[in-house]
Design a protein around this nucleic acid. Structure first.
Lengths: 341, 341
DNA sequence: TGTAAAAATGCAAACGATTGCAATTGGTAT
DNA sequence: ATACCAATTGCAATCGTTTGCATTTTTACA
């Protein structure tokens, strides 16, 4: 059990009385090796709890079975690193990757440097990349895509891009959220978020769609551009009420965290939710269900999205070309909005 | 810029008109190579954006510069994977590791299998392990520790263990939390959590300490053992009130998520916080500040803890023996508790 | 029993970087 | 010019697996 030195294929071969190559093939269950030899060697390996040296294996096969997941936080604040939504995606990606035999190399600090693709791919640290988030500009991502590195991006799949993107139908989500508020009787609905952020742009367009479809005027002063953090939302809503009074009765927030920040600002001022102001979020993080009032939101199916991303990446590793995919979203109605009017 | 094949040290050597070994040494800035040769080769490498093949390098040096971070979720429910606190630690660990030149290999699904140490270490996927969470039993972790694998564990550092542990002073935290409620005038304080969970045991003892120091009787029926999830807390508090009425006026929750679940159950019944029931959480996740009422809690310094864990791990890789470390905690008073009585 | 085909195994050359040691270069003092 | 030492550089073995090809063993059939 406890040998002083790790054993390798050679040692195992000696123990089994066969050649190294036979052991190698037996362990990968190569049918060219006689069945009984295979099971015998596999048992032997098990018994000595042998495991293959991946460094050597990777060198020889030129394949790592590792995928680097890069959190694209270029223009996010520190706060957003701990955004539950981002981290939920990481957890889901991990599951999806593991189930396909890949390991997950995490990085949240490499987007800043300009040669991350190099760092991970050329150096043979990983076979492919999954980038989480497009940010305000996907310039860097496009550059990397142009080099032909296997890559999938979590972002807005409806937008034209030179790389495969997986994400929610943000525009539809924005529309559903807004429509839900309109149906609930809201007359003056804020859009709270950053329309320039690529994933938020669609939501913003959806917001405008809903207004148009319901013959409501679109008033740019109801667009409140903020950093996508709960703190920014909290502060901005406070300011707005101070300077302009309670001129709105609904909020379409571009994320749950933003919605929760806004709600806090409202509650501190004893503004009723949903009666004075109704709120819809986006993401459906755990806290959405848990907050009080619970948060109506557009649910993003991260688990499904993660599986799709992994499948697409693996397809690329196998030389196939893949396109973008839209993952369904769903309006989850809870207490922060009125339902029947 | 865009060669059809990745170049290696040999190619670079040819380009530079020197030998492979000289290039290797030049790139690692080995002073044995003449300064001008070094800079010339480094520039050349830069220009061809060359990067070393880590597979080969790892094989040769027997070192990976990778640390595996394992989320110990054996007995957690699915919900807790997305616990903001856990994931905050991962983010902080990532920063700490990157700053020391290590990459982070994430795993949340390997604790279940019994040979994870094997998987990561013997196979040379990583140089060391960081295990996040001790769970209800650290048997598996102890086994691994016994094999001498370089490892650090996030958990309760005050508990005796055969491996170096980094974590908060849970006992003190439990005491501070409870004392804070007592000072606020609470007479009947629940402990809400799972005393058997290793990290929670200390908090539970601290709760008892505070009662004793303040000459309050410890009543076991005020210990509410639940899974460490907000949902469990929410449901349990509902049940308790239904069956026993509002027999308590304070809650020491073993985590913020648990506290938030409890608060939701209370608010749904229009129970005033903190006037009817005061609540203290543990962790200080983002939502603690953001919820309404905001949550008084015991803040754990995960950033500092992460740095310490990484330092300890690296020390082990250098052959040093290291012990456990306690990270300071801090009571953060917010709206969910009364302050001056 | 002989022979061809099929099945099973072994040989040996990669993969690309690192490093102890040997070899070369340059400089300095005789 | 010679010898010697230091400063540079190059040689070649090594890390452990994988795999095309050669070789041996087994099986099937005449």
């Amino acid at each position: 059990m406890k040998n002083n030195k790790k054993l390798n294929l050679n040692d195992l071969a000696e123990l089994a009385g066969v050649s190294t190559s036979t052991v190698s093939r037996a362990l990968s269950d190569n049918p060219i090796i006689k069945k009984e030899t295979r099971v015998r060697i596999q048992a032997l390996a098990e018994q000595h709890n042998f495991s293959i040296n991946t460094a050597a294996s990777r060198l020889r096969t030129q394949k790592t079975n590792v995928v680097a997941v890069i959190l694209n936080l270029i223009d996010h604040t520190e706060q957003s690193i701990s955004d539950p939504f981002l981290l939920k995606i990481v957890a889901d990606l991990n599951q999806a990757l593991n189930s396909k035999g890949y390991d997950l190399l995490l990085s949240n600090s490499f987007m800043a440097t300009d040669n991350w693709a190099n760092y991970f791919i050329n150096s043979q640290r990983a076979d492919g990349l999954i980038v989480v988030g497009q940010g305000k500009s996907d310039e860097k991502v496009q550059e990397v895509a142009a080099t032909g590195v296997p890559m999938v991006v979590w972002g807005d799949p409806l937008r034209d891009s030179s790389y495969p993107t997986v994400g929610s139908n943000n525009r539809l989500g924005g529309e559903l959220a807004t429509e839900h508020l309109l149906h609930g009787g809201c007359k003056n609905i804020l859009f709270l978020g950053d329309p320039e952020h690529m994933e938020m742009t669609g939501r913003y367009l959806g917001y405008q769609d809903a207004l148009a479809k319901n013959a409501r005027a679109f008033d740019p002063t109801f667009t409140v551009a903020i950093d996508i953090t709960s703190r920014a939302a909290y502060e901005k809503i406070g300011e707005l009420i101070l300077s302009r009074g309670l001129f709105f009765d609904g909020i379409v927030a571009c994320s749950d965290m933003v919605a929760l920040g806004a709600i806090r600002a409202l509650k501190e001022r004893y503004i009723g939710i949903p009666n004075d102001v109704a709120v819809v979020g986006f993401d459906d993080i755990l806290m959405a269900e848990l907050s009080y009032p619970s948060l109506t939101t557009i649910k993003q199916n991260t688990l499904r999205a993660s599986q799709i991303m992994v499948d697409k990446l693996i397809a690329q590793l196998n030389g196939q070309k893949v396109g973008s995919s839209v993952v369904d979203i769903e309006l989850v109605t809870r207490q922060s909005s009125k339902h029947n009017v």
